[in-house]
Design a binder for these strands. Sequence first.
DNA 1: AATTTGCGCAAGCAAATACTTTCATACAAT
DNA 2: ATTGTATGAAAGTATTTGCTTGCGCAAATT
Lengths: 125, 125
Amino acid sequence: MEIKRDVFQAIADPTRRKIIGLLATQSMNLNTISENFEITRQAVSLHIKILEQCNLVSIRQEGRERICEAKLEKLNEVHQWTEQFSIFWTKKLQVLKQVVENSPKTPSNLPGNQMSQATKNTKIR
Amino acid sequence: MEIKRDVFQAIADPTRRKIIGLLATQSMNLNTISENFEITRQAVSLHIKILEQCNLVSIRQEGRERICEAKLEKLNEVHQWTEQFSIFWTKKLQVLKQVVENSPKTPSNLPGNQMSQATKNTKIR
DNA sequence: AATTTGCGCAAGCAAATACTTTCATACAAT
DNA sequence: ATTGTATGAAAGTATTTGCTTGCGCAAATT
């Protein structure tokens, strides 16, 4: 239930990203997931545990099977984090660079971001 | 120049995400970046190297300084990967679940995703 | 009742990660 | 020329990661 793990860390592993893609299409049990990978069932089980720990997957017991269901709302966190930098892959970038580099001492005319703490003691050379 | 590292892995580390946020506001040299963190300059230098290896940061020499500049287009890859699952944090989810679970054998009525390979030998129990 | 299936747990291991400290080098300022 | 500054490179270390093999157990099938 509790979040013990960073969602960014969870999706860092390519196998886990594949598992996510797999479960997004439909829920399935652990063995069925494992059949899609070269690694052992136990290894997959570990990945699933990690995904569960950061609420990307929920598991329900059904007889002796454990059905894994994607619950990817948490990925919104990642989506939003990247969103704030989307300016870097749009045409606005050129304009922005000019604005920032030509304005004398106001690097704060950027769209809202989450770096207030990190930036607060930045020394401008 | 070449991509030696996964961008998902690069942003898995919270320190690197902070560095990205920092550099997004303005370019700065290595020491200035380090001043924003508790860890040593060398540790930051390593993080920068990793960010450089997956093209999230470019470095130009200026006298004895190395100016690090954000070059975050690569984050678009992450943005798009999460985008395909955005259905999970919108109201469409409820509807989708019904559609998928009530249609007998067609889990392929999902929006385009990149799991063709992973899914191709999925056994449906 | 015996066997198969689905799965967790634990121990072990090699490699990677995230640092550190120490040293060396090149440019800059005095 | 000497000193200070910005940095890399290397070596060492503790921790984490991703995986394996081997075991046991409970539910399902025969």
